[in-house]
């Protein structure tokens, strides 16, 4: 999973919070019953997120760049968050070999499927940027990211006209459900995907991207919150929609009730 809210802490606090809400007498818990997932009141409130998405897309230029910082602003390690050490067999096998056997597959609604090794990706023109990572929890960390622009790969593969979103399949498991292992996944629209600062990063602060931050490859989507920036990318798929993928909300955290746009 990406730099979304920490899973264990979330679960712990949810349990703690549930205990507290039972104790509280006539506090704000009066509204709890209306705010569960799939509740109609919640759906109405959540429709404002669609308005936010449209308003930001309408008002702000597609090409506007996120702020970049001076090297002196890199004052600490990039904070690892979410999954920090995937333990699925296929991932640990790649990790043992320093990801020499890793291949990034790009498929779905493309003219030509791609399969690229890390060396092939590193030999493509690179882009480095010192940017601020904003987590949905509220914290920010400035770090330098190096990688290949996603737009370059999309151009190489050729995006079919019916494609609307880029779907990232990840190696990290978020737990198992009745349907099997639930892997982290994310989607972004093509405007975000083609943004010049959207890169598939293999380097962090002038070193190889460490496992805790998403090795071998994570996406940087600099104008959105951390949970959009999928780590441990297994493959990329161009899709026309995401209603039929997993929970249908376009991402792991989105299926847990977080907004898809994540621009606020």
């Amino acid at each position: 999973m990406s730099d979304g809210p920490s899973f264990n802490r979330r679960r712990f606090l949810a349990t703690a919070g549930a205990g507290a809400s039972m104790l509280s007498l006539g506090g704000c818990d009066a509204f709890d019953a209306m705010l569960g997932q799939n509740d109609r009141v919640r759906d109405v409130l959540a429709s404002a997120n669609q308005l936010t998405y449209r308003a930001q897309r309408l008002l702000f230029g597609e090409e506007a760049l996120a702020r970049t910082y001076a090297p002196s602003e890199i004052r600490q390690q990039m904070r690892p968050n979410g999954s920090t050490s995937p333990n699925q067999d296929d991932y640990t096998k790649l990790q043992k070999n320093d990801f020499a056997d890793y291949r990034l597959e790009i498929g779905g609604l493309v003219d030509k499927k791609l399969s690229l090794s890390l060396d092939e990706l590193r030999n493509m023109p690179a882009r480095s940027q010192i940017t601020r990572h904003d987590c949905v929890e509220g914290w920010s960390v400035i770090a330098k990211w190096t990688g290949v622009q996603l737009s370059r790969l999309l151009d190489q593969a050729g995006v079919k006209p019916q494609a609307r979103y880029v779907l990232f399949h990840c190696y990290d498991s978020m737990g198992a459900t009745l349907e099997g292992v639930q892997y982290y996944y994310e989607t972004i629209d093509l405007i975000s995907a083609r943004h010049p600062q959207t890169i598939l990063a293999y380097g962090l602060n002038d070193k190889t991207l460490p496992v805790s931050n998403g090795a071998p490859l994570r996406v940087r989507v600099e104008r959105q919150l951390g949970y959009k920036m999928a780590k441990y990318i297994r493959s990329i798929e161009l899709v026309s929609g995401f209603a039929n993928i997993n929970g249908g909300n376009g991402g792991y955290w989105e299926d847990q009730g977080y907004d898809w746009w994540a621009g606020t």
Binding site: P5, A14, A16, A18, S21, C28, D32, V136, G257
Partner: peptide, 11 residues
């Protein structure tokens, strides 16, 4: 909400 749920708080 009274329980911990960042996603719902944001909504």
């Amino acid at each position: 909400p009274s329980y911990y749920d960042l996603g719902t708080g944001r909504v």
